[in-house]
Design a protein around this nucleic acid. Structure first.
Lengths: 196, 196
DNA sequence: GTCTATACGAAGATAGAC
DNA sequence: GTCTATCTTCGTATAGAC
């Protein structure tokens, strides 16, 4: 089975994502990515002519898109079910990595730098797309637009914050706490439209 | 007016905090801190024998303690008032910096690194102290312990997440959204104890 | 597509003078 | 308390061979 033409490229993106989740973007060097992906040195500027910045930007875009899928590909699910899936995905990532991995999008957003506005912009697009998908889902279930927007902001902000805090404190309590508190809010918002 | 003995030390810590808030810890070099604080080169290892790591650790501790004060020094305030003060402090910081400054504790937490567990631990202590202060406040106002813990986790996680997202997207909407959604939760939790 | 070599700068840390 | 080297390592990026 011969490797597809762009196998190294994919592996580099995967490795970049993994390392950024663990230690942030600034601390992730090209050497680190090469070592982790075991991609050939010569591949860097072949696949990513824009160098390190392009590689990281694409990694953020991919991560953002994959989460967006999780939130959007669920036409037959209720908002509470989608929320639980969202929380579980992060929870599993934390547990599987023994509290080493967080969110790559948040990491890049926080290391925001005037030198590389593309990275901040990519992170912002990801956040906005997640809130947009959740908001659309809630509206489809009868929640008024303004309330849908507010709840979506809460879900994304609280989960992102809780993942970071849970990781630092090495306990899932914060993430579980916010999940327990938010779940009834979503349920009530959806229920209310049928019994005003 | 002659500078106090430890003036340079304080300035270095202030500058480190400012720079970490803007670009994260990994991207903040000693040279950056020296330039920003205009402290003398020779002062680094004089005041911080532990070098860069010690400096950053102390900066995180100071930032954590100052927010803890904000949350704890409020015996005469209601939970909603304390929450509003907490949100306002972050909101003001974002606005004053034109969306350049976030939370230094979150930044250090996310750039977590197996090489410097002290930094992660310092961030974890700060988060825990904030949740502890809020939880104590809620309990003093009659909220049952488990609910107080869950609400405190939500407040800290949502505000931290929303500050990061608002900064990246360059709009205060996420922060304002979560504030509007959380405020009634706190009010209800406090009100409920008097009318069960 | 991938390799080696190298240019070039920046970073943390230490030594010793003052 | 502070300064000026200087050591050493690491990081990005490029050039040119294969």
């Amino acid at each position: 089975m011969s490797p597809r033409r762009s196998d190294a490229r994919q592996r580099m993106l995967d490795s970049a994502t993994t390392l950024i989740r663990q230690r942030g973007a600034s601390a992730t060097s090209l050497d680190d990515i090469l070592a982790h992906s075991r991609a050939p040195r010569g591949s860097i500027y072949y696949y990513f002519p824009g160098g390190r910045t392009q590689l990281i930007e694409e990694a953020v875009e991919r991560a953002g898109a994959s989460i967006e899928q999780l939130l959007a590909d669920a036409d037959d699910l209720t908002p509470v079910e989608v929320f639980d899936g969202f929380v579980s995905a992060w929870r599993d990532g934390i547990v599987a990595s023994s509290f080493l991995s967080g969110c790559p999008v948040l990491a890049v957003a926080i290391e925001s730098n005037e030198d590389t506005p593309q990275l901040t912009a990519a992170a912002a697009r990801a956040f906005a797309s997640w809130r947009g998908a959740l908001s659309a889902l809630l509206r489809r279930h009868g929640v008024p637009p303004a309330e849908a927007r507010r709840l979506s902001s809460l879900v994304v902000a609280a989960v992102e914050g809780a993942v970071a805090i849970s990781r630092a404190e090495r306990t899932l309590q914060p993430l579980d706490d916010i999940a327990q508190t938010i779940r009834p809010l979503l349920r009530d918002a959806v229920t209310r439209r049928s019994k005003p």
